[in-house]
Amino acid sequence: MGLRPRPVPDPGFRRPAEFAVAGCGTAFGWLAGHYIGDYYDRELDRIAKPQRPIPSGRLAAGTALACGIGLAVAAVVLLAWANWRTVVLVGLALGGIVAYSRFCKARGLSGNLVRGVITALAFLIGAMVAAPLPGWSAIAFSVVFLLHDAASNLVGTLRDVDGDRAAGYRSVPVRSGVRHAARLAAVLYGAAIATAALGLLLPHRPGFPVLLGAAACVGLFAVLPLPFLAPTLSQARALRAHEFLVAERLVLASAVLARTVPPLVVGSLLVLALVFSLWTQAAMRSAHEIPTDKEVQPT
Rank of each mutant, 00 (worst) to 15 (best):
L124K: 02
A138K: 06
P262Q: 08
R102E: 09
G68Q: 05
R85G: 08
A80L: 07
L147S: 04
G156H: 01
L270C: 05
G91P: 01
S101Y: 01
A82C: 08
A131Y: 09
P263L: 14
G91M: 05
G70M: 08
A241L: 03
V143I: 10
L201E: 15
L250W: 11
V271D: 15
D160S: 00
L65S: 06
E243F: 10
R115Q: 13
W30E: 15
E248C: 06
A196D: 04
S254G: 12
S101T: 01
V296K: 13
A32W: 02
V296I: 15
G168Y: 09
S152R: 02
A20I: 09
F28V: 04
S101L: 02
D45I: 05
P132Y: 15
A191N: 06
V271K: 07
W81P: 01
V114Q: 02
V155E: 00
V98R: 00
F13E: 14
A222M: 04
T26E: 14
V210D: 12
G111K: 02
D149I: 12
R4P: 09
G68Y: 03
A181K: 00
D38S: 07
L3D: 12
P227S: 09
R115S: 13
A80V: 03
A181P: 00
V155D: 00
R52G: 01
R183E: 15
W84S: 12
F244M: 06
A230S: 05
D38A: 07
L270R: 00
G116H: 04
P50L: 13
